[in-house]
């Protein structure tokens, strides 16, 4: 609670800077629009204006600055424009009962969410299984761990188109599969690293204690190692779900997908509708925030029930 005022202040500063930046960013476009509408603009012709700095243009055409805040295709939209676009493609669609129409961001967000969750599930499973293998087997530790690190230094976006081509050739028509694979690829690594740390976190004396109880390998795994790793697991899950969302959107960007938030960004770029791009970006941000917050709540409840004090 202590942080609410500072956070709000910083947010206000960011929005203020954004608002102020709209005028210079949109000045040239605003002048072009005003000129086409027959207003006097100094100097005339967009070619003549190209070499003049934006600040000079703003000083000479002060009466047109305001119109930069309501352009149809702004270089930088105002926060209210983005908010209005977001509302138009989500809330307003719901009110008309068309929440899942193809023009609604709820529909596209749902598509993205599905691949994110599948990728998250796949990545988390792989990460946990890999961690168990690494903790219990020297061979796996020595041969897998370096490659896990290297796999993350490979820019997945380079692989993304190939994964999609490959799964197409193999006869997998659903677009969700390649996207989920890319999401899992980004998601498994933080889980793997944290789980290795978590499974190794019990001290030798604790493991020895279980031995004196004549507990077998399985028992010491389920009664000691696994519970001890839960706090590590949750921390990495929060990183992992954000990574899975990034993976899904990266998987949607370069591939000509038609639905999903990444595809909205792509289509917005191709059709020159910046407002659609910004709205999709903010929708993705909101989705990321909701997912991470949900996991945070689950983490708090689980850790509390398990008796961890934090």
């Amino acid at each position: 609670m202590r942080n609410v005022v500072p956070v709000l202040t910083v947010l206000a500063i960011i929005v203020g800077v954004w608002w102020a930046a709209v005028a210079p960013m949109n000045m040239r476009a605003a002048l072009d629009v005003a000129e086409r509408a027959g207003d006097t603009v100094v100097p005339e012709g967009s070619v003549q204006r190209r070499d003049i700095s934006v600040l000079t243009l703003m000083a000479n055409n002060a009466q047109h600055i305001a119109s930069g805040y309501s352009l149809k295709r702004p270089r930088l939209p105002t926060p209210t424009q983005v908010g209005a676009e977001l509302w138009k493609t989500t809330g307003a669609m719901v009110m008309r009962g068309r929440a899942f129409s193809k023009r609604s961001l709820i529909y596209h967000g749902w598509i993205t969410l599905q691949s994110t969750l599948w990728g998250f599930l796949l990545g988390t499973t792989l990460g946990i299984l890999g961690a168990v293998a690494i903790v219990y087997s020297r061979v796996a530790n020595m041969s897998l761990m370096p490659w896990a690190v290297i796999s993350q230094t490979i820019p997945i976006v380079a692989l993304a188109p190939m994964i999609i081509v490959l799964s197409n050739q193999l006869g997998i028509q659903e677009r969700i599969v390649p996207k989920a694979i890319i999401a899992a690829y980004l998601c498994y690594f933080p889980v793997l690293v944290s789980m290795v740390k978590g499974l190794r976190s019990p001290a030798a004396s604790e493991l020895d204690l279980l031995k004196t109880y004549s507990a077998g390998g399985l028992q010491s795994f389920f009664k000691l190692r696994l519970p001890a790793s839960v706090p590590f697991l949750f921390t990495s899950l929060k990183v992992g779900i954000a990574a899975a969302l990034v993976g899904t959107i990266v998987g949607e960007l370069p591939t000509g997908a038609i639905s999903g938030l990444g595809a909205r960004i792509l289509i917005g770029d191709q059709f020159g509708t910046p407002l659609a791009i910004w709205a999709a970006l903010f929708a993705a941000a909101i989705l990321a925030g909701v997912l991470v917050t949900l996991l945070d709540v689950v983490q708090r409840i689980t850790l509390f029930k398990m008796g961890f004090r934090s």
Binding site: P6, V10, L11, L245, I249, I265, I277, A288
Partner: peptide, 27 residues
Amino acid sequence: FLTRGLLPIGNFVAALPIVGIAPILVN
């Protein structure tokens, strides 16, 4: 004051799919 305000926001933004701004910046 600024640190306390910026850290949560920075943490949040670092988790966002920022790659999406690529088309805007190319523009």
